[in-house]
Write a protein that binds this DNA or RNA. Sequence first.
DNA 1: AGGTAGTTTGAACGCACATTCAGTCAAGGG
DNA 2: CCCTTGACTGAATGTGCGTTCAAACTACCT
Lengths: 201, 201
Amino acid sequence: MIEATIEAIAELGFSATTIAEIARRAEVSTGLVAFYFRDKDGLLEATLRHLSSDLARAVVSRLRAAGSPRERIQAVIDANLGASQFHRRIATVWLAFWGQVPHNAHFRRVQRIYERRMISDLVDALKAYMAPADARHLAHATAALIDGLWLRGTLAGEEPATSRAREIVTAFVDTQLLLLDLALLRRPAQEPAHAIPRTHS
Amino acid sequence: MIEATIEAIAELGFSATTIAEIARRAEVSTGLVAFYFRDKDGLLEATLRHLSSDLARAVVSRLRAAGSPRERIQAVIDANLGASQFHRRIATVWLAFWGQVPHNAHFRRVQRIYERRMISDLVDALKAYMAPADARHLAHATAALIDGLWLRGTLAGEEPATSRAREIVTAFVDTQLLLLDLALLRRPAQEPAHAIPRTHS
DNA sequence: AGGTAGTTTGAACGCACATTCAGTCAAGGG
DNA sequence: CCCTTGACTGAATGTGCGTTCAAACTACCT
């Protein structure tokens, strides 16, 4: 039923999605929505939560496979810009929900969780390389770059740009870490921070 | 009337905005919408075009005041992340339209113009510092960073983050240009490209 | 004054929607 | 074999929407 909702929003858009259409796709009656989700808004909220937890699962599973902090950063990048999130069917639905976020308290709460999770995942990993304040700073920039590439890719309707997007973010992060090394090397002699990760702060 | 539409979408959201509500705010009758814009969709498209040309004007006016290519890049950054675009009243309306883009051919056309304009403005300026292919690459990353910061700021509902967002993008661009200088200095002796802008390729 | 073209009105229309609810159906327990 | 519980149906209801259009109003010209 939630799957049918995703399908309908992806195909018809947010405002053109009706309960009758969702019921048709799910091969149930219209009345069943009220039985399980109280009303249409309840179904939509459940759908957004479903999308959000799908993404969270993708991130967690990649984080588990990651060893070094650098790999954990990459896990966040790859999960958020992975094929599953870029797939038109999913991406347009996210976008439709984002458009409603300012006017729906339920959606806003889910969005805050999404946003904070990405930041804290990135900050956790970046703290291995730099001071917490710098880590937060870079995490915000990285998160924005990820979301911006996702947004532009989705709006443009480009399907296959996913690997290119990941390369851009990867290069950005590597550049920032490289600059950190250079700065450290010029100061009182010290190893590049990410050759000996997780040893300070 | 277009102003009233912006106001209504900002306050109520896309799907809750009715012609009656717009007419009430504009202090006209509902029938007048049809007279000037054919139907509701025509009014919405005109509203999006209005927003788009407002932004374009802001960019052009800053570009005119800019001298060096570096200043032209900054003009794009400042115009897109300026207070006028971050103002909740405007930003939530943009967001609402973006959510409809995949399902409305008119909106999609306006979006393509917006997207390409930012890229070409950036590429034009960046070509002074690097090969066209590199310029396009960096332009995409910069544009994504701008849009990503805008998106996150708008979704989070933070009003005053505008100066911080601009700092992040500015720092990103400066870093990329700095790296270019470093690379050039290590190769066969050559001046940093942006000390002698616009002289090659 | 009369006429005309350009504006504006707002009630009427018909349609599409979310919600409701009385009722059907299937399964399991007593 | 009946009764209960939970899942599910779909027609009926009423509300709210965009659109239409005949009529009214305004300003300008002749």
